[in-house]
């Protein structure tokens, strides 16, 4: 059982995501509006985190939802709408980072994000956060900082372990062991939250 699937708002909604997708494929465009309302914050947040630019994050959010509707590649048998949108958003964000920037600018982006997150508190609105986000953050808070750092760089910046090693000035073997330990530890923490 996966420890923490992406949000599944259908649990508290009268219309399931699956039914919405069926309606959307049949031409009922109101279903896309509902899916947007359910998932746009998740998509936009991930896009903003990875691209560190509100205009680009807006553009990517729009692209993700337009392509969801236009390309119709989502298959309900292979996972939730949330999982699909997360995967799609991250993949497209990484493409943008690679294509438009090259590695040097990716590193600059990373430094900018690190500086920004270090000096300003998050604009927290607890009332609007999903329970799963709170669980994950609680688990992340229990990770050693060194492990969390490399995991987040790998996930949000898409850097290879060799690139992380160069960025942080630590041996490649250390990056590898921190990534693996961090992932295993996070998996255990999330499992304990569910039990």
């Amino acid at each position: 059982m996966p420890p923490l699937p992406p949000p599944d708002p259908q649990m508290s909604s009268p219309v399931s995501d699956r039914d919405l997708v069926t309606r959307l494929w049949a031409g009922d465009t109101t279903a896309l509006a509902t899916l947007y309302d359910r998932y746009s914050s998740m998509v936009y947040t991930l896009a903003l985190k990875m691209l560190s630019n509100p205009a680009e994050a807006e553009d990517l959010t729009q692209e993700v939802f337009v392509n969801f509707w236009q390309r119709r590649q989502y298959d309900a048998e292979r996972g939730s709408v949330g999982s699909y949108l997360v995967t799609n958003t991250r993949s497209r964000a990484l493409d943008r980072l690679r294509i438009s920037s090259g590695r040097a600018v990716i590193l600059q982006r990373f430094q900018r994000i690190s500086e920004a997150s270090a000096r300003s508190p998050n604009p927290v609105d607890y009332a609007a956060q999903h329970e799963q986000n709170q669980h994950l953050r609680a688990a992340l808070d229990q990770l050693p900082t060194t492990e969390r750092e490399v995991l987040e760089i790998a996930y949000f910046q898409g850097l290879t372990q060799a690139e992380i090693s160069a960025q942080l000035g630590i041996p490649l073997g250390t990056v590898k062991s921190r990534c693996r330990q961090g992932l295993l530890r996070l998996r255990t923490l999330l499992q304990h939250q569910k039990d």
Partner: peptide, 27 residues
Amino acid sequence: ALQATWGSLALGPTLVAPPPDLRDRTL
């Protein structure tokens, strides 16, 4: 389980709502 854990990192950042007008533009 490990793949799901890796994917769940997307949910780490505090949720930020997109600008309201993005909804109409997207649709």
